[in-house]
Design a protein around this nucleic acid. Structure first.
Length: 511
RNA sequence: GCCGGGGUAGCUCAGUGGAAGAGCGCAACACUCAUAACGUUGAGGUCGUGGGAUCGUUCCCCACCCCCGGCACCA
């Protein structure tokens, strides 16, 4: 590698490091990321799989930089919907949520996730933390009681929110008049935080990513905030965290659930761990924008705790262009996908096909096209051909790569680091696949299969191909770690030697 | 209705005031190390519609049409 090229690589690497530092903990090598906690009234679906796989990639990228990472996920287990569902299924509520928590935890092995913490909102410690959080907001004067009016549909036997109504009536029972029920609830003084929230958004334009989501929440806050209800009458719905010093109320599920992001760190008792990892990064779907970037931030201010470091908002996954829903019967089960295609194929699809910040689509046709096109014909085939060609000269001393090859790797590295820092993983993988094309073309051009009688020339080609493969392996490691390991089992490129031993195909072509 | 984002190749999308791009799909050619893989070449677009400013616009301005998201208790 030329001196000029070398210094340019170093420079880029420094730039990217600086960029990522802005979005991570400014303190000593600690990084914290959390998903939202899925509500356990339905099985895990592919949308949550996307969220947690992305979080996993971010966690792995930070670990690769030598940081200590806390990666949190878990389950949200309180609230009326869960309580009713357990009743419907004639199950003990705790037994019901235990079953679901176990189901969600199985995503860890199915998707090869590296989370370090799995919190359940029914954990004893979490409940105590939620109560302490409540006390702090109360002490700050942000909690008060007032009458709460809810609309109730006698037909559904359920309370209805405005957004559920069509022309002011229940869409399922449009002929029934909604009853108004008044009950006394505790409220959080959200309205008090309009200005502080706007200041927060103004102070850090990268707090919410992408930018249009920051604009969306800024407008929402600008339009004025109403205090929101944070408790429910225990007599009507007992499945919640007890409100401190008031046996008649339990916390509304929002309030308790959001506290998980810090209770999982041991807050409030473990001050040291909390200070080391908080503030952290949060990833959430677009339906969670308000809760994460406004409500939770106001709650943190009220409790006199630092705001989140960054909130990454992603889109939804549609299925063949249609919204995924239980009633449509088109919900995609991540476990079934993994059974059929394997963990890394599923991870790859989610990360490559779904855009970073917008809605993406799933279909079996697209999935299989990605699988065959990118994984079987692309990555898998390249590894197979390099392994077969290289086996003949293995082991061999490593030779410095051609300038053109080194330059191409440096170019891709720059694009890779930039797009990863902005969480544009689809584009990062696109850049890595350009390197696969480079390697394929290099092999076609140099025709190593014609050099059976010229081992020196063959070694040079294998050295270059090996450097490319090893760069590809490094780049895909956070995305499809198991595959990266399998590449290294076949093609081991170290500073001074290259060892190659052919094994089975990474991704057999689908028929 | 108000606010925001979009309409570019069959599909998914990138892009620039100065001769329209990528990937996938399709066709032809070439190759045989490799998973009927890989490579090369090619076909295919009045860059939503109509005006305007400009020497010149897919890009700037105006109007209109269409799509998507947000406009409070959706875990």
């Amino acid at each position: 590698m030329s001196a000029e090229l070398m210094s340019s690589c170093v420079r880029h690497s420094l730039d990217c490091q600086q960029f990522m530092n802005e979005t991570t903990d400014k303190k000593s090598g600690a990084f914290y990321i959390t998903t939202t906690l899925p509500y356990v009234n339905a099985d895990p679906h592919i949308g949550f799989a996307l969220e947690i796989v992305k979080a996993d990639v971010i966690a792995r990228l930070h670990r690769a930089r030598g940081e200590e990472v806390v990666f949190n996920t878990g389950t949200d287990e309180h609230g009326v919907k869960i309580w009713r569902k357990a009743l419907d299924e004639k199950k003990d509520t705790q037994a019901y949520v235990d079953e679901y928590a176990a189901k969600f935890d199985r995503l860890k092995s199915a998707l090869n996730l590296s989370y370090t913490h799995f919190i359940r909102t029914t954990d004893v410690h979490h409940k105590a933390a939620a109560q302490e959080f409540w006390r702090r907001c109360d002490k700050a004067g942000d909690i008060y009681k007032k009458n709460y009016r809810v609309k109730y549909c006698v037909g559904c036997e359920l309370e209805k929110t405005e957004s559920e109504l069509v022309d002011g009536a229940c869409p399922i029972h449009p002929n029934l008049t909604l009853e108004i029920i008044e009950e006394e609830n505790y409220f959080f003084r959200f309205s008090r935080y309009q200005e502080p929230l706007l200041e927060l958004y103004a102070a850090d334009a990268a707090l919410v990513v992408p930018e249009h989501r920051l604009n969306e929440i800024r407008r929402f806050v600008s339009d004025g905030l109403q205090d929101f209800s944070i408790s429910r009458l225990k007599a009507k719905m007992p499945w919640g965290v007890a409100v401190p010093d008031d046996p008649d109320h339990v916390m509304y599920v929002w309030f308790d659930a959001l506290v998980n992001y810090i209770s999982t760190l041991g807050w409030p008792e473990d001050e040291k761990n909390f200070r080391r990892f908080w503030p952290g990064m949060q990833i959430a779907g677009k339906d969670n924008l308000r809760q994460q970037s406004a409500m939770w931030q106001a709650m943190l201010m009220s409790a006199d705790l630092p705001n989140s470091r960054q909130i990454l908002i992603q889109g939804f996954i549609t299925v063949e262009g249609a919204k995924m829903s239980k009633s449509a019967g088109n919900v995609v089960d991540p476990f079934a996908l993994v059974d059929k295609y394997g963990t890394d194929a599923v991870r790859y699809y989610l990360l490559r096909e779904i855009p970073a910040y917008e809605d993406g689509d799933f279909s079996y046709e697209k999935f299989e096209a990605r699988y065959n096109g990118d994984l079987a014909n692309g990555l898998g085939n390249l590894i197979a051909r390099v392994a077969t060609l290289g086996e003949k000269v293995s082991p061999m001393p490593q030779i410095a790569p051609d300038d053109a090859i080194a330059r191409e790797i440096a170019r891709v590295r720059e694009a890779y680091e930039k797009t990863c820092a902005e969480f544009r993983f689809s584009e990062a993988l696109g850049a890595v696949w350009e390197l696969i094309a480079t390697a394929d073309k290099y092999i076609n051009d140099t025709k190593p299969w014609t050099l059976k009688d010229d081992p020196a020339a063959l070694r040079k080609i294998i050295a270059n191909a090996g450097i490319l493969v090893d760069a590809i392996r490094e780049f895909i490691t956070p995305f499809i770690p198991e595959t990266a390991d399998k590449v290294r089992e076949q093609i081991i490129v170290d500073d001074d030697t290259v060892k190659i031993q052919k094994r089975g195909n990474l991704f057999p072509r689908l028929p």
